[in-house]
């Protein structure tokens, strides 16, 4: 009985959290703020969230592309099919690794920073203070961060995939001697703009929504103490990584199974 009670209580509090987070998101997004005041805030957040994640994304992209090429080559060369290295690398990046790895790195780099920043603003009463100054913190603090995350992640994913393909070219063509012409041409023959690139971008937008939402909610809803913030930051990374993987499975099933 005690167990059931606990289970019921937990379920209800999950629903309550979902409700609170939805209310937060809607409160932040319902009316678009005055562009003259909103744009500088958005640009600042694009800088913090997007630009500052650029380095880790590009470096990871380069190395993942290089590793993919190395691993793919050793397998493919056994069948004399090393010319298919291009499509192997490009398809795995555009469909899966680009959006997913970017989202995971983004959750670790930008998501945790967002949670910690907002949690700290809550702990130091900056959010309350905004409210007392008759400024809605949802509009002022949450909304620009949400949009910046939502815009940044697909851009980062595109950059990740492009850099990774260049990395694969570096290893596959320049070091391992795959023919450059067939690397590109077979890739082009196999990769479709709509099916692979656009679907990858759609995935990226979904992940951006999920990760940014979780990060902002965890910060906004955290217990405003140092333990509360550190717990919320950890939860952001764990929950958004799991959510990204779960949504990736769903989206892959919808997009690529037909």
């Amino acid at each position: 009985m005690d167990f059931l009670q606990k289970l019921g209580h937990k379920t209800l509090s999950r629903f309550a959290a979902l409700g609170r987070s939805t209310r937060m998101l809607i409160g932040a997004l319902v009316n678009i703020p005055n562009p003259k005041k909103g744009t500088p805030l958005l640009i600042r957040q694009l800088y913090m969230i997007g630009y500052q994640s650029l380095l880790i994304i590009m470096v990871s992209g380069l190395f993942i592309g290089m590793v993919l090429a190395l691993q793919g080559y050793t397998v493919l060369v056994g069948y004399g099919a090393e010319d298919s290295l291009g499509p192997l690398v490009a398809l795995s990046l555009l469909r899966e690794l680009g959006p997913v790895v970017t989202a995971l790195l983004f959750a670790g780099r930008a998501g945790s920073a967002l949670t910690a920043e907002i949690g700290l603003m809550k702990a130091t009463e900056q959010l309350s203070s905004l409210e007392m100054m008759a400024i809605d913190p949802l509009k002022r603090v949450i909304a620009p961060r949400f949009w910046a995350g939502f815009i940044s992640m697909p851009i980062l994913a595109l950059i990740f995939s492009a850099v990774a393909i260049l990395g694969a070219h570096l290893v596959g063509v320049d070091w391992l001697g795959v023919d450059s012409g067939s690397f590109w041409s077979i890739m082009q023959a196999q990769v479709s703009f709509e099916k692979d690139i656009l679907n990858g971008i759609i995935k990226s937008f979904v992940f951006a929504l999920v990760v940014t939402w979780i990060a902002l909610y965890k910060g906004y809803d955290c217990i405003p103490t140092s333990e509360g913030i550190s717990k919320a930051t950890t939860e952001t990374v764990v929950h958004s990584s799991l959510a990204v993987l779960g949504f990736d499975f769903l989206l892959t099933a919808v997009m690529f199974s037909g």
Partner: peptide, 29 residues
């Protein structure tokens, strides 16, 4: 602010270039 604006512009431009590379060089159009 100006420096931030320039860097964000750079970031978005990199995204556009990446998109163009993927669309033109990687995919069959």
């Amino acid at each position: 602010t100006r420096k931030i604006e320039i860097l964000v512009g750079l970031f978005v431009a990199l995204g556009v270039i990446a998109f163009a590379v993927l669309a033109l060089k990687v995919a069959n159009s």
